[in-house]
Simulated assay, not measured.
Amino acid sequence: MTATSQLSGLAAEWHTARLLFPIYSALAREFVIDLPACSDLEAGVEAPPQESVELAKQWLREVDERIQVHQLRQFLQTTPLTTQEVLQTILVHHLQKEKRSASDRDKIDFLLVQFFSHCAPSGLDDGDVDLEYVAQVLEPALGAVDSVLPPWLKPLEQLMQSAKHCRRLSELLHSGILEQGRKLKVQCGDKYFLPAAMVAFTRFSFMMRRVFFHLMHEDLNAILDGLRDLERHGVSTLDCRRAQFSAEEPVARLRMICQSWKVMFHAEYSSGQPLRMLVDLRAAVDDALAKNGVGKTPATASAASKVARAATASAGPAAQPNRNSAASASTVPEFEVASNSQEWNAHEDDSSPQQSPGDDNDG
């Protein structure tokens, strides 16, 4: 390596460290994580000596070890600091590690789909999300990638098709589709880091996000329609103990809660507890409709279907990648759900934050 190329490499490493420093610092404050000191990064030194660059690299390694996957996911999905440059820098930073742990793999997996979601246009149609297009969007981070699906990843196509046939969120959560996708990812081992494999898993995760988001809104719309039908038939309270509410929960209050969930699921990170409550609340409303002999009118069902379709519908053929991503695509949480789990958790990590019912009931 020549002296010039070494200096260029040091400058690039310092640029990465300076860009990540405020992001990691803000994340650490949010989750109360103790970080080691790094005086030159804190001072914002423009051209530090090589020793300072090495110290900054060590600082990044230590911080990476302290940040958990679910913390990185929650922070980047909610902070206004997230930009295309930030996502690409964090992604490339993890890809360039010589040794990658299972945690690094999960972070890379999240960052890939988050970067794709951020860059993809809001009107992207499902049919346009093929491997070639995903590889094109990810090229700034992965370089040029062959868009041929490796034979050992063909099960991903079958899982995506199965997910598209799910009609309710509970059906998806109990189907084992998400669990099978996760299992395949783990079984890949180091082959996961092959560029073609990362492109394939990014496409899979992005499509699962869309299905997940669509079904959440289908359930919310079905609940709201059901509550309106029940009110029209004189029903003012519901037994919603299965959804962790009271035995005589006011319909008006349930409607307010669902409206707040619409905002939360659309614009914020959400954890497993609200998802379970959502599924159980729909079941409670369905039971009440059946008990009271109330059925949806064609107009109501049609309206609910239109609203749900609008949440994920495309505006036209995909254009070239741009920085204006769909909010629905970029903010829906990652999810790893075990089909035999008693708790429908939106994340594989048991230490992920759980929202209590009270957090969601404040209007």
Rank of each mutant, 00 (worst) to 15 (best):
R66V: 01
A17V: 03
H347I: 01
D126T: 03
D128R: 04
A315R: 14
D104A: 00
H93L: 04
A102M: 03
Y24M: 10
F201A: 15
W261D: 05
A288F: 01
K183S: 14
L7Y: 07
L153H: 03
R18D: 04
P150M: 12
N221T: 06
V45G: 09
D359F: 10
M207T: 02
D190Q: 14
A243T: 00
E343M: 07
A12Y: 00
M256V: 05
D109W: 09
C166S: 14
K191C: 06
V199K: 15
E46W: 05
W261M: 11
D362V: 06
D239V: 01
A315T: 13
A319H: 12
A17Q: 06
A37F: 06
V129T: 05
R232S: 12
E85L: 15
K154W: 05
S122I: 01
N324W: 04
F204M: 07
A283Q: 09
D125Y: 03
E132G: 14
P80C: 08
C119F: 00
Q77C: 07
S39K: 12
V307F: 09
L124M: 11
Q68T: 05
S5E: 09
A144Q: 10
G226F: 04
G358D: 07
K262A: 04
R73P: 00
G293R: 13
R232Y: 05
Q354G: 03
D146K: 14
P155C: 09
A326L: 08
G127R: 10
A26T: 06
L169I: 02
P48G: 05
D190K: 12
A303W: 06
M1L: 10
A283K: 07
C119S: 11
R203K: 15
V32Q: 15
C188G: 13
S246I: 01
R105D: 01
S305G: 15
E218N: 11
E348K: 14
A290F: 02
S8W: 03
R309S: 06
S325R: 06
A284P: 00
I108A: 11
E98G: 14
R61A: 12
Q136G: 04
E249G: 10
F265T: 01
L194K: 08
Q187Y: 05
S39W: 02
V134R: 10
P151Y: 11
S8E: 09
R167F: 03
L224Y: 02
D225P: 01
L278T: 02
V92S: 08
T4W: 09
N322M: 05
E42Y: 04
I33K: 15
E336Q: 12
V294N: 11
S302Q: 11
S351H: 12
Q320E: 15
L169A: 12
A346C: 10
I33V: 14
S314V: 03
S175E: 03
E157H: 08
L159Q: 07
H118N: 08
L10I: 00
K154Y: 07
K97E: 15
V251Q: 08
E132D: 09
V69L: 12
C38R: 10
L124G: 04
F212E: 06
E30D: 13
W261R: 09
S314D: 12
S314G: 13
H214S: 13
A120S: 14
